[in-house]
């Protein structure tokens, strides 16, 4: 499985033609204590760069953008019930949603882990 990153601090784990999407540990540390998460509806057709989810900390609300185009096939209901998972396990249990990748060529513009580390350094 490959993990890719966006400049908006999202991660994508690619498994065949499905991408699991979340926000990075760096992003959660910048947001602070997460108190609310709103996820897209299963079946929604996302276009790359459109607002797909919302994450709210005590301080502010932030959009999570679709890093690639595709239909939402699953969302993490556990996150809606326990938003603080974003702070405790951003790269693991706190995944947001999964999409069926519409256009694999969109993955070409994303960063690998080394490039993302350099981006946030």
């Amino acid at each position: 499985m490959t993990t890719l990153f966006t400049t908006d601090h999202e991660w994508l784990r690619i498994d065949g033609d499905v991408a699991t999407i979340g926000i990075t540990d760096y992003a959660q540390s910048q947001l602070g204590d997460v108190v609310f998460v709103e996820l897209p509806k299963v079946g929604r057709s996302l276009k790359k760069a459109e607002a797909a989810a919302v994450v709210e900390s005590v301080k502010a609300a932030s959009d999570v953008y679709a890093p690639i185009s595709g239909d939402v096939v699953e969302v993490n209901e556990e996150l809606t019930a326990e938003p603080a998972l974003v702070n405790s396990d951003a790269a693991g249990k706190a995944w947001f949603f999964k999409v069926k990748i519409a256009d694999k060529s969109e993955l070409g513009g994303l960063m690998d882990e080394a490039a993302y580390k350099a981006h946030t350094a």
Partner: peptide, 12 residues
């Protein structure tokens, strides 16, 4: 200072 290391929630 908007917050320290422990964050808004714990400070509150």
């Amino acid at each position: 200072p908007v917050q320290y290391a422990s964050g808004v929630l714990r400070e509150h």
